[in-house]
Design a protein around this nucleic acid. Structure first.
Length: 875
DNA sequence: AAGGGTGCCG
C-alpha cells in the first residue's frame, strides 16, 4: 500500500507511454472523475449549483493561464512571458510559485535584470508568504546581477531559509568585495545552526584570502576540519588559495602534499601561488612534476606560466610556452593571448607581442590595453596613442585601466588636446571616480604644463591616496612651482604617510629652491623610518645637499651611503655647477681608481666642469676617451658640451667646424650652445647663423628666445631685442617671472622680481639703497639705474636675488651665511653687487641659479667671475 | 535544481 501511494504520487511526472504506469494513472483518474460526478449530482440538487460551477471553471482557467505562461518560459519567450504575467496580475489571476520560479530562472539565464525586476514586482504583489524555493530563485538571480540590495531584502523576507540561501548570499558578498559582510554572514549562519557545506567554505576562505587575514583563515580551517570537509578536493583547493593569498606558502604546500586527491585546480592553485609570491623556480618545478604525473596543463596553467616568464626572465621558456599554446586547443583563447602579449612585452620582445596581437581572432578591451601598455613601456607613446585610436574606431569601449595607459602616453607626448578629450571621456563613463584614473589625469596635465588643471582634478578626488598627492607634488615641482609643492607636502603629512617616491620628489623640490631645513627634515625622517638606506633615496638626499650648495653635508652623505655611478655623477655635477673643474677631474680620477665604470651622464658632468673652468684641452681629451677608452657613444648632449667648451673659450670657428663634422644630426641645443658662445664673444654674424639653425629645429621653447634677446642685448642691437620680444608675445610665449628664495629660520621666503608687496619691503629697499650709494661712492657705478640695466645682457635677470639677500641680512644674526636660490641666471651687475655686499657685511653669500653656483666671500666669487655672461672684459 | 575552488591588463 505504501509503495502504491508513493508511486501514485510521482505519477503525473512520469512517462505515460509506460503502459503499467499509464494504467495506474487511468485508474486513478477514473476514480477521481467518478467522485466528481457523484459530487456534482448531489450539488445539482442544491441551489448553490451555479456559484460553485463558476468557481470550478475559474480554477481551471487559472490553471490553463499558468500552464501557458510556464510553456512560454520553456520556449524561452522572455518578453512575451513577462507581459503575460503582468496581464494575468491585472486580471487578478494568481501566478503559481513554480511559474514565478520558471520566469526568474529565465531572466537569470538571459541576464535580463529589467525583466527580472518586473517579475520581482509580481512576486511582491502577491499576498502569499515568500517560501524557500521562490526566495532562493530570487536570491540567485539578484546575486548573479550583482544586486545585493534586493538580495538582502529578499533574504530578510524569506519565511524559511536553507543552506543554499545562505551560500548564495555569502558568495554574492564575497564576489562583490564586501568582505566584512561576507564574514559576518558566515558567523550568523553558524549562529542560526545552519550546517555549512562544501559550497560554503570556498566563499568564506576566498574572503579571508582577499583581505590577507591569516588569523581568520586559520580559524576557518579549523571549522573545515570540525565539520569534516578536510578531505574534500574543492574545499582543499580553496584552503590552498587562502594560504597562498596570505603569503603562507609553506602551509599551502603542506596541505597540497597531504591532499588525498588532487585535481588540475589544485595544481594550478599551487603553481600560480608560487609565481604570485616570487617563487618562480618552485612553481616551475611543480609544473614539471605535474607533467611527470601526466596531469595535463590547461588554459589556466598556461596563462599563469606565461605571466611567470617575466619573473623567471626566461625567454626560451616563453617561446616554448607559445609553441605549446599554438598547437593546443586554447590557441585562440582571448585571455591566453592577452597573457602572451604581456609576456613578450615584459621580456622586451615588442615585435612578438605585436604578432600575437595581430593574429588574434577576437580581441577584448584587455588585449587592446595590453598592447597600449606595451608601447607605453617600450617608450613608444605615439604608437600607444595610435593603438588607442584604432581601438576606439573598432568600437571597443575603454575601461579605467585603458584610460590610465593612454593618459600616460599622452603625458609623455605632451598631447594636451587628446588629454582633454580623454578627460571628457573619463567624466562621461564615470571612470574618473577611479582614483588611479584621476591620478593619471593629474600627471597628464602636469606634463602638458597645465598644472592648474591638475590642481582642479586633484581637489575633486574624494579618496585621495599617496599617489594622488605625490603626482600633484611632482607636477608642481616640474612646473617650477616647488614653493607650492612644499606647501602641499606639509598639508599631505597631516592625513597621509608619504612613501619613498614622495620623499624623492619633495627632496628635488627642496633642492630646487634651496629649502635646506625641509630637506634635512626629510633626511632625518628617512633615516628614522629606515627607508633612507635603499633605492633612490640616498642619492636624492645627496642631490639635495649638493644643489643647496652644502658641500660638507653632501660629502658626509656621500661617504656614508651606498654608492652607485649615479652618486658619483651627482657630486660631479655639483662641482661642474660650482665651476670647480679641477675638483671634478680629481673626483673622476678617484672614481677610476675604485674601478667605478663611468657612464654617459658622468661625461656630461665632466665636460661641463671642464667647460666652466676653461679646461679646453682636458675636455677634448675626455670626449675622445669616451669612445676609445670607455666604449661609450657620445650623444647630442656630449656634443653640445664640446661646442660650449670650445665656444666659451672663444674658439668659435672650431666650435662651428665641430658641429659640421658631427656624425649625428645636430639639434637645437647644439646650435644654442654656439649662439650662447657668440653672445659671450659678441660674434654677430656667426650668432645670427646659429640662431637661424636653432629656430629651424625648435621654435617652441622659451629658453631660446630669451637667449636670442640676450644675444642681441649683448651686441647692443636693441631694435632686434624688442623685435624678438614682440614675436614672443605674438606666439604667446611667457617667461616665468624672476624669483628668488631665501631660507630664514627654516622657512623659505619667495621674492618675485619687481614685487614690493613683502611686509618688510620698506626695510629691504632701505638696505639696498644703502649699498647702491656706497657702491657709487666707491666708483662702481649706479646699479640702481634702470637705464644702465637695460643696456646690459640682463634683460631677464629680474634682480630678485637682491631683495632676497637684503631680507636675509635683516633677519639673521651678523656673520651668518646667506643662501639664495633663483630661477634665472644671475646678471653681471647683480654678481658685482653681491661681491661688494659680501665684503661690506663680512658674510658668505651663496646664489644658486639654473645651473650655476656662485659663492661669495670677502668680495670674491668662487666662480672666478666666469658666469653666464662669460669672461671678464668681454661683456 | 541551484551555489563554491585556479589565470590574464595599470
Amino acid at each position: 500500500m505504501a509503495v502504491f501511494a508513493q508511486s501514485s504520487n510521482v505519477l503525473t511526472y512520469l512517462d505515460r507511454s509506460n503502459p503499467q504506469i499509464s494504467n495506474n494513472y487511468n485508474l486513478k483518474a477514473l476514480s477521481f472523475s467518478k467522485n466528481l460526478q457523484t459530487h456534482k449530482q448531489t450539488l445539482r440538487k442544491s441551489q448553490e449549483i451555479s456559484v460553485l460551477g463558476a468557481a470550478v471553471s475559474n480554477s481551471t482557467f487559472n490553471q490553463t493561464q499558468n500552464l501557458e505562461l510556464q510553456q512560454l518560459c520553456l520556449l524561452g519567450k522572455l518578453e512575451q512571458a513577462v507581459k503575460r504575467m503582468e496581464s494575468m496580475l491585472e486580471l487578478r489571476i494568481e501566478v503559481e510559485e513554480d511559474v514565478y520560479i520558471a520566469l526568474l530562472r529565465l531572466c537569470e539565464w538571459r541576464r535580463a535584470p529589467d525583466e527580472g525586476s518586473r517579475v520581482y514586482g509580481g512576486v511582491l504583489s502577491s499576498k502569499s508568504r515568500l517560501g524557500v524555493r521562490l526566495g532562493n530563485a530570487l536570491l540567485s538571480m539578484f546575486v548573479r546581477f550583482g544586486n545585493l540590495t534586493d538580495a538582502w531584502y529578499v533574504f530578510g523576507k524569506m519565511s524559511e531559509r536553507d543552506v543554499f540561501s545562505w551560500n548564495v548570499l555569502l558568495g554574492g558578498y564575497a564576489k562583490a568585495g564586501c568582505f566584512d559582510e561576507a564574514l559576518n554572514l558566515y558567523h550568523r549562519m553558524l549562529w542560526a545552526e545552519i550546517r555549512p557545506d562544501v559550497y560554503t567554505f570556498p566563499s568564506v576562505l576566498r574572503t579571508c584570502g582577499c583581505i590577507s587575514d591569516i588569523v581568520r583563515g586559520k580559524e576557518i580551517h579549523t571549522h573545515v576540519i570540525r565539520f569534516g570537509f578536510e578531505l574534500d578536493v574543492d574545499v582543499g583547493n580553496a584552503l590552498i588559495t587562502m594560504y597562498v593569498k596570505c603569503g603562507d606558502l609553506s602551509n599551502a604546500r603542506k596541505l597540497f602534499d597531504k591532499m588525498p586527491k588532487r585535481d588540475r585546480i589544485s595544481w594550478n592553485a599551487m603553481i600560480s601561488g608560487y609565481f604570485e609570491n616570487g617563487g618562480g623556480l618552485d612553481g616551475l618545478r611543480l609544473f614539471f612534476m605535474m607533467r611527470e604525473l601526466s596531469v595535463d596543463p590547461d588554459l589556466i596553467t598556461m596563462t599563469s606560466l606565461a605571466s611567470a616568464c617575466e619573473l623567471l626572465g626566461n625567454q626560451r621558456l616563453g617561446t616554448e610556452i607559445h609553441g605549446v599554446v599554438v598547437k593546443s586547443e586554447f590557441g585562440d583563447d582571448v585571455s591566453m593571448n592577452n597573457s602572451l602579449i604581456q609576456m613578450y612585452s615584459s621580456l622586451g620582445h615588442l615585435g612578438e607581442a605585436e604578432k600575437v596581437f595581430s593574429r588574434m581572432v577576437s580581441k577584448d578591451v584587455v588585449s587592446w590595453t595590453a598592447m597600449i601598455a606595451s608601447y607605453d613601456s617600450h617608450k613608444l607613446p605615439l604608437k600607444a596613442v595610435e593603438t588607442y585610436k584604432t581601438m576606439a574606431l573598432e568600437g571597443v569601449m575603454a575601461d579605467g585601466i585603458t584610460l590610465v595607459s593612454v593618459l600616460s602616453a599622452c603625458a609623455c607626448l605632451g598631447h594636451l588636446d587628446l588629454g582633454i578629450r580623454l578627460h571628457g571621456i573619463t567624466i562621461k563613463t564615470g571612470f574618473i571616480s577611479h582614483v588611479m584614473v584621476s591620478n593619471a589625469l593629474i600627471d597628464m596635465y602636469s606634463k602638458c604644463k597645465c598644472v592648474n588643471k591638475a590642481l582642479e582634478v586633484f581637489h575633486k578626488i574624494s579618496g585621495k591616496n599617496v599617489i594622488s598627492w605625490t603626482s600633484l607634488i611632482l607636477g608642481l615641482r616640474i612646473n617650477n612651482r616647488s614653493f607650492e609643492a612644499l606647501f602641499f607636502f606639509r598639508q599631505m603629512k597631516e592625513s597621509m604617510k608619504p612613501n619613498s617616491v614622495t620623499l624623492i620628489t619633495i627632496l628635488s623640490a627642496c633642492a630646487r629652491i634651496g629649502a635646506l631645513m625641509c630637506g634635512k627634515e626629510i633626511h632625518a625622517h628617512a633615516l628614522r623610518t629606515g627607508v633612507g638606506f635603499d633605492g633612490f633615496l640616498p642619492n636624492a638626499i645627496l642631490d639635495m645637499y649638493v644643489r643647496c650648495g652644502r658641500n660638507v653635508p653632501a660629502l658626509n652623505q656621500f661617504n656614508s651611503q651606498k654608492k652607485d655611478v649615479t652618486s658619483w655623477n651627482i657630486l660631479l655635477t655639483g662641482y661642474a655647477e660650482q665651476g670647480q673643474g679641477k675638483l671634478a677631474v680629481e673626483l673622476f680620477d678617484e672614481m677610476l681608481e675604485l674601478e667605478i665604470n663611468p657612464d654617459e651622464i658622468t661625461f656630461i658632468a665632466l665636460l661641463c666642469a671642464c667647460s666652466r673652468s676653461g679646461m679646453v684641452m682636458e675636455g677634448l681629451e675626455y670626449f675622445n676617451e669616451m669612445k676609445n677608452k670607455y666604449n661609450l657613444t657620445p650623444n647630442l648632449k656630449h656634443h653640445a658640451c664640446v661646442v660650449d667648451l670650445l665656444g666659451r673659450a672663444g674658439q668659435l670657428d672650431d666650435a662651428y667646424d665641430f658641429i659640421q663634422d658631427m656624425p649625428i644630426e645636430p639639434d637645437a641645443a647644439i646650435w644654442g650652445a654656439l649662439l650662447n658662445a657668440c653672445r659671450i664673444h659678441r660674434s654677430v654674424q656667426l650668432g645670427e647663423l646659429a640662431a637661424s639653425r636653432v629656430f629651424e629645429k625648435d621654435d617652441k621653447s622659451v629658453g631660446y628666445y630669451v637667449l636670442l634677446c640676450n644675444f642681441y642685448a649683448e651686441c647692443g642691437n636693441w631694435e632686434k631685442v624688442s623685435k624678438v620680444r614682440t614675436v614672443m608675445r605674438e606666439r604667446g610665449l611667457a617667461v616665468d617671472p624672476g624669483c628668488s628664495w631665501v631660507e630664514v629660520n627654516g622657512k623659505v621666503h619667495a621674492f618675485l622680481s619687481g614685487d614690493n608687496f613683502h611686509a618688510q619691503s620698506k626695510e629691504i629697499n632701505g638696505v639696498l639703497d644703502g649699498f647702491y650709494s656706497k657702491m657709487k661712492e666707491a666708483g662702481l657705478g649706479d646699479l640702481k639705474s634702470s637705464e644702465v640695466e637695460s643696456s646690459r645682457a640682463d634683460v631677464f635677470c629680474g634682480h630678485s636675488e637682491r631683495q632676497a639677500i637684503a631680507f636675509g641680512l635683516i633677519n639673521t644674526a651678523p656673520g651668518m651665511p646667506i643662501w639664495v636660490t633663483k630661477n634665472m641666471y644671475m646678471c653681471r651687475r647683480c654678481h658685482d653687487m653681491v661681491k661688494f655686499i659680501s665684503r661690506i657685511v663680512r658674510r658668505e653669500i651663496s646664489v644658486r641659479n639654473v645651473e650655476e653656483h656662485h659663492h661669495f666671500k670677502d668680495g670674491v666669487c668662487l666662480c672666478g667671475d666666469e658666469g653666464y655672461w662669460g669672461k671678464p672684459g668681454t661683456g
